[in-house]
Structure formats: structure tokens, C-alpha cells
Amino acid sequence: MAIDTEQEVGPGAARTPAPSKRGLPGIGLLKGLGITLKHLLSRSITQQYPDEKPNLPARTRGVIALKEANCTVCYMCSRECPDWCIYIDAHKETHEPAGGGRGRSVKVLDRFAIDYALCMYCGICVEVCPFDALFWSPEFEYAEYDILEMTHEKERLEEWTYLVKPPPELEVGAEPPEEEVVAKAPDATPAQAPRAQAPAGPEAGTQAAAQPAPQPAAATAGAPEETAPARPAGERHEVEPEQETFDRVLQDELGKGTDRRVAEGRAKAAAIRAARKKAEG
């Protein structure tokens, strides 16, 4: 696809196909043959699964795992489960406090099982679990020869938590996790910190050089640049990409010989980063 250099550039114009110059008749057919030939000669990306373990992303949703220590037997997962595939049995015990006084009731988990013959992997149980006892695990090799054996007990579910990988690196320019924002806010008290429901400190500013921070402690080098003043932490705010930055980066990238599609993507990312920086002063 040939594109005129005078063509209007910008985030809106990026995806409209340019009127292509007409080359020799049938040149497109030959180009198509060239592409398939190129692919024929390049390495294939197949992972030969039983011989070779697949290279899965860290957050693969293979199976639901249980971290038993976190479970308080609140039954929320089993009640929310759309097809009733979670089985929970528990009993109550009374623990006498060490210093004397009234005995405290605690629920003790006897059985936690998920019937994977019924589970449809909707992940609602993982979502509702208030104490992060349920996880997505990348394990996927738990097929059985008998459908009755598809009900896996808590010991097996616990093993799968060991396979959960650390989270992948965030993309450039991505907003940090809200827990991190709250933890880094200067006036984050222990009461506020764990669940991150409270608004973060208003002064979670950008780089120290950009602006003298009212409270210098907030402007650490690692502080998130997207957190605008007087905004609740973690809330997204949309900005319009900056046109000048877009044009400049696009020209740079095209000058370097980058593919146009890639160049437009990089230019747009740079434009949004610049616009965010400006919006925050």
C-alpha cells in the first residue's frame, strides 16, 4: 500500500486507507506471492505441546486455585457461582483467648472442592473473594479419564497456587496499580492503605523537576506521573493526544524507516504521554 507523504496525519486520520498509487497491473498479485514465500522461508512459531511446554503469559487463566490460609469460609464464591460447582464444608470452633474472657467463634474449612466438569471458567468466584483466597493459575493439565474425578479437592487447588507467576512488567506509560499509589501517598495511614478505597494524597505529583512539590516527600523518583493533583488515586482521566508531538515523533520514526503502522502507534503513545505531562502542569 503506497501512501502519499502529504497525506493528512493525526490520530484520527491514522486508520483511513490512503488512495494507493496504481502500479503495474497485477503487481499486487505478485506482492501477495512474495509475502507467502517470505513466510514459507521464515521459522514457524508452533510450540509442539506434549514435547514442549507452551510459553504462556503470566496471567493465563488455566484453572482456579485456592490459598487455604486466606479463606474465611464466607461462602461468597459458592453462592455467586453460576453453575454451583464449588463445594464448601466447614464447622465452627470456639477458641479461648489466651488472656481469658469470652470464647471466640471461628469457622474452620473442612472441604473446599471445585467440580471442573461443571466450572465454566467465568472467574466470578475469583472476583468476589474478599480476601484473595482464589486465584487464576496457569496450570491446564488436569484432565481425568473419569468425569467424577474432575472434582478437585483443596489440597490439589492449593498446589496450583504455587504455579502462579509474578505479574508481568507494566507497559510504558501505564497507570500503576492502585495499591501502589496508595502505599506511596504521604498521608496514607495504615487504616487507609490495605484496600485502597480512600482517595490518595492530593500531592502525588510528577517528577520533582517539573514542579516544586508542596510536600517534597511525595515527589520521589518512582512516583507515578499520571496521578494528577486532587484526584482520587487510580482513577483514569482521558487526555487528547498532542498534535505537535504526534507529528514530530511520526516524522522521526518514518525517517528511521519504521513501518508506518508501528510508527503511528509510537507517535500516538508519545503524544498522549506529552499531553498527560502538560495536563499535570
Partner: peptide
């Protein structure tokens, strides 16, 4: 084989 490799696959193995 040719069709598979043109689609970045391996074909029968």
C-alpha cells in the same frame, strides 16, 4: 507442509 509453513505452522509432525 508448504501450506503449513506459509502460515507459520509445522504441519504433520
Amino acid at each position: 507442509k508448504v501450506l503449513a509453513h506459509m502460515q507459520h505452522r509445522l504441519g504433520p509432525m
